[in-house]
Every structure is written in structure tokens, then in C-alpha cells.
Amino acid sequence: MNDGLDQEGALRTTAPLKIPVRDILPDAASVLRAQGVSGPARKKVADLGRQALALLESLASPAAVVEGVSLDEFMEVFRGEGLNESPNPIEKIFPFASGLALFAVTLGDKVRGKIDALFTTDDFALGCLLDTAASLAADRAAAWLEARCSAPSQRLRARPKGGALSGGRAPQEIRPLRYSPGYCGWHLSGQKKLFARLKPERIGLRLNESWLMSPLKSVSGVIVTAPASRHAVEPSYGFCASCRNRTCKTRSGTRPEGLGKEAA
């Protein structure tokens, strides 16, 4: 595994990548906030938050695989097992992409093992904080990749291989943004073709019969580099009603702190 980055920090490889764990550690306040702690936490809880982050730093071994694909290649992956919702927002975005990159990222097995162990010893609070910290870190790892697909230089190896992309480079702000099976109408079964294409087994990822990745604390999907306005999704699709995530309106304009300030 290598860091896969050129001197300017852009991705330049399809080989497995090692992500520096410090780059993706969330801050203690975010972890506590994600657990519903509003305002200052009492000392005992704040200490546990810091302990969870220290554990995460020592146990996580974030790794990723990423591969640029053409529009046709992506359409084949996206079609999956034919179970996607229709209409869905993703199919309205990717035809305007100037870059498409399949990706999978994981924190590795050890974090999950530690969470289980903490619950076994009744250390529920620390286990739960570590779980939350790891979820945030996995998302930040995906954002780390996204940031390296950033416009304006379009340096990611996500250039189309054959298959012309409609839209091309629009004369407006270009923004890479990730989409994952299981969200926004892309059926979870899409993982099957995504895995077949990307082979994330190279970084220790497995897929079960429910198309669930293990170890948990992994993220997969596609990074679509497209005009920023194209990413703005109104949560008005039928399936949006049962979605508890609802980050579609905010995430198109934001990125976790410390990740890719250079990005659009």
C-alpha cells in the first residue's frame, strides 16, 4: 500500500491507498455532539470522549481503493441488480459529471473488535463513543478521498475511459460529491457490482448476502465530479420520507473541517 498522492496531494493511483489516521480523526466535540450532547459535557463524559479518540487513533488503519470509470462503466455498476428506485436523484446528476470514481474505504477490523469488547465488559459509554467516533472517521475518510478529487485541477484518475461524458466542464463551480448504495434511491444491492468492479477485498472488505460490508465502519460508492448546482437535491422523492439521514441539502455545500479546504 502507498499514499497514492502526488506532490500536490492529488490521487494518482488505483492501488490500495493508506490514509493517514490523523487526517480523519474527528474532534471530541463532534463525537459528543453526534451522541446528542449539547452544551458542555461533564468531565467524566468529556474524558471518555478523549479516550475514545485515543483508542480510535491507535486501532484504526484506514485504507481505500478508488478507480476512475467512464460513464458507460458507471452506468453498468449503478444499474446493479435492477432494484434502484426510479426516478432517483443520482441518475439526474452523473450524466453531467466530468469525473466518476468508484471508491471504498474502511477503518479496518480492530476498531469494531474493540467496540464489541467494550460492550462485553460493560464499558457501554466508551464503546458507544468509540462507535460514534469511528462512524464519523469513516465518513471523514470518504471525504478525504473526495477532497482529493477536487476541482479545479481535476487531478483524480476519474477521467472517462471511453464513453463520452455529456456536459463536460461547465463554466461554473465544479464539485466532487460522493453517493453510496443504500441512499438516494441507489439500492443496496448495487454493492454487488461495485465490489465486482473495484475489488475492495484488497483492503479487507467483504460483502455479505444482504450486501452489507464488513468490517462495519466502511463506506463505498461513487464520487461524482459535477457542477455544484447539479448536486443540490430536493428531498422530494418517495423514498425520502423514510430517510433519517437527510443530509442531502447540506452536504452538497459542506465538507468536514480540515478536509480539503482547497476543494470547491
Partner: peptide
Amino acid sequence: EREVFLPDVLLAAKAMHA
């Protein structure tokens, strides 16, 4: 009533188990 948060509940649960 949001006077305490999940980690507080889980710390209490650990004390309860003890």
C-alpha cells in the same frame, strides 16, 4: 427531558450492572 445525554445513561447502566 434532555437534562442528561446518552453517555450519562450508559455510565449509569454500568454502575447499575456493578
